[in-house]
Amino acid sequence: MMDLGPHAIFIIWAYVGVVVAVFALICAVRIDARRVARRLAALEAQGLRRRSDAP
């Protein structure tokens, strides 16, 4: 690993914070997507269809 100088701690924490936040954001978006997909699948399994999706 390279030498980040006397302020290494700030650089590391900046990147760690950004990585954690971006990772959390990606997870939140994916979890939300999965939950909604499951909810939609459950509804369609009950036989509900949109008017525009003609059988």
Binding site: L25, I26, V29, R30, D32, A33, V36, A37, R39, L40, L43, E44, L48, R50
Partner: peptide
Amino acid sequence: LHLKAMHTEIRRRRAMGL
């Protein structure tokens, strides 16, 4: 992320409509 969230939102609305 915006595109993915938009897809989710579209599906959410469809689910709410159903």
